[in-house]
């Protein structure tokens, strides 16, 4: 009883609790119910009758480019010896990445300078891609694709989609039912982007390896089985591992971000308010970690490729 009175006398605690209760109650009101998540593995073409390559993923990639370049221009255009707030943040990012690169690839080494643009671009691009998918409107603003249906039917489909909230187990995409194609899609949730980065990362690893060691680099993957049988087997596994890097790179990033978005959608579907906020925090964390992981792994592979493995024979 005393506890209750103390609780009621604390206005902030009381208001917060009331707010939470109101939001939770509102969450079960049908009007506020989120539609069942529409999960599409692939980036979708934006225009129903337009080119297939013009996907929401591509559009968002261009948006990401624009944002990054604008941020860079804004930071650098009026660069001063005594930096402003934004210039300071950007300098901190670039210097931090530069120090990280140097700490792995060697301080002041030529390798650091060679690797740096690749890894920092990966980091910035992946980070902005991950975060842009968390903006409100991603996945919810879009164009209805209705096949041969008329506008009126699309309108009906809209209402159906709203009503679909009531029947929780909405039938998966009935024939003729219009589908909402989101206008934007995080590039990290588009396998084309992650695979492209993975290919670049693995290809550049080979490139830097050859640049540093010459053709000797490939002895890592191919050995004469008659001279060194065990070595040849190990080398073969190395080759497999190198190729599987492409898959692990691309699906790690894609999986994390795509799954994160699905989690957010599902949580919003289960409890419209409050619950997704918690997962937003989680997604912010994951978005940063994944960008860092992609960058650090690439940097580590670059560095490893430039080191000769024959030395200790």
């Amino acid at each position: 009883m005393n506890l209750l009175r103390a609780f009621l006398s604390n206005s902030r605690l009381r208001n917060a609790t009331i707010g939470i209760i109101v939001l939770l109650v509102l969450s079960v009101v049908p009007f506020f119910k989120a539609p069942p998540p529409h999960v599409e593995l692939a980036a979708e073409a934006l225009l129903e009758h337009g080119p297939k390559w013009f996907t929401n993923g591509l559009l968002t990639t261009l948006l990401v480019d624009l944002i990054i370049i604008l941020m860079a221009v804004f930071a650098v255009s009026r660069m001063k010896e005594v930096p402003g707030a934004w210039q300071n943040i950007v300098e901190m990012l670039v210097e931090g990445m530069w120090n990280l690169t140097q700490s792995i690839a060697g301080h002041g080494s030529a390798n650091s300078r060679k690797f740096f643009p690749w890894v920092i671009t990966i980091f910035i691009f992946v980070l902005v891609s991950n975060y842009i998918g968390l903006l409100p409107g991603f996945g919810s603003i879009g164009i209805y694709h209705s096949g041969a249906e008329s506008h009126a039917q699309a309108e009906l489909g809209n209402r159906l989609a709203m009503a679909g909230a009531e029947s929780v187990a909405a039938a998966p995409a009935e024939e003729g039912k219009p589908v909402l194609v989101p206008l934007f899609r995080s590039p990290s949730a588009d396998l084309n982007m992650t695979l492209a980065l993975a290919l670049i990362s693995v290809f550049m690893t080979q490139f830097f390896g050859v640049q540093a060691l010459g053709l000797r680099y490939f002895t890592k993957f191919f050995k004469n089985p008659f001279k060194d049988g065990m070595g040849a087997v190990v080398a073969f596994f190395e080759l497999i591992a190198e190729i599987s890097k492409i898959i692990s790179f691309s699906f790690r990033l894609f999986g994390n971000i795509f799954a994160g978005e699905v989690v957010l959608l599902v949580m919003a579907f289960l409890v419209t308010f409050l619950l997704p906020s918690i997962f937003y925090g989680l997604e912010l964390f994951i978005g940063f970690i994944q960008a860092l992981v992609f960058m650090l792994l690439t940097l580590a592979f670059f560095t490893m490729a430039t080191v000769s493995h024959d030395d200790h024979h």
């Binding site: 390559w53 990639t61 370049i69 670039v94 670049i200």
Partner: peptide, 25 residues
């Protein structure tokens, strides 16, 4: 799309190299 992403990344890297990394460093 894969090619477009690769080219996109390459371009972005070159642009940022000139625009951001070099001046900032």
């Amino acid at each position: 799309l894969l090619l477009s992403q690769i080219i996109n990344f390459g371009l972005l890297m070159v642009i940022l190299q000139q625009l951001l990394y070099k001046p900032v460093l």
